[in-house]
Amino acid sequence: MIDPLSIFLLLLSASTPILFAALGELVAERAGILNLGVEGMMIAGALAGFAAAYATGNPFLGFLVAALAGAAISLLYTVLTQLFLANQVASGLALTLFGLGLAAMFGKPFEGVKAPPMPIGPLGINWIVWLGLAMVPAIWWFMNRTRRGLILRAVGENHDAAHALGYDVRATRAAAIAFGGAMAGVGGAFISIATVLQWTEGMTAGAGWIALAIVVFSNWTAFGVLAGAWLFGGVTVLQLRLQAAGVNVPVQLLSMAPYLATIIVLVMISARQKYSRKAGGAAPGSLGNNFHALR
């Protein structure tokens, strides 16, 4: 028998890395930044967080270090796109390739050691899962109910207008990128510290890319991101359950499910956005474009 509550708990855990990374990317994209470096920032957080947790024996310190590491590596992207006005797509790819390489290089000594145990939070659910769930309304509130959130969205919708009104486009975007990096770092660390409990090379396995797809799925809203992350978590848990139940389908084909589900969902949402009345869907107006002030 499969107990629905235990399935839901597994789903929560499976969706948490994606939830953190996608919420961070959501804030960045609402500021007009398309950062394809999520995967690189996640793996940096996964390694740095694991190393700190292992060295200190304190998993929470691990998550803190992971957030700092994610924000630190995202600085490279900020310098390239905000100072040197480099193409955002190419810069994000560079961040992912560099992050994966750097983590593989410095991760060697941490292979084969175990993470310290996580203390269990209320209702038997990991504290970090709770934090992720709390971030959803917090980010919604920040973006829709605060002045800074309004400025952030203005910068993302039309950076020229925001600049003309006297808002600092670059500083806003730099902050949004750093926040996205910190969130991706925590998401990555959840995989290494709380799920897999050890470090292996390339362990994020595309989670950062799935997070990018979930932001599109969310129609650029915080609660939409939660729905997307749970959908993804559900597919992952189902796939693992089917593997464990020994269904007569090769394991390799079952493990394609999360990626195929991401494509299917992306297609459905894109089609809805494409054929709806509102041209361009809900994507921020200046998404992916760099801002250069001539005055």
């Binding site: 394809l36 799935i210 493990s255 990626y259 494509i263 992306l266 894109s270 089609a271 494409k274």
Partner: peptide
């Protein structure tokens, strides 16, 4: 459908890796 070719082409890398593993085994 207007789906991002960046994300779809990248997702298909992970699918292709699993196709290769399936073929090999």
């Amino acid at each position: 459908f207007g789906a991002s070719e960046i994300l779809v082409s990248l997702m298909l890398v992970y699918v292709a890796q699993r196709v290769a593993a399936w073929m090999a085994f």
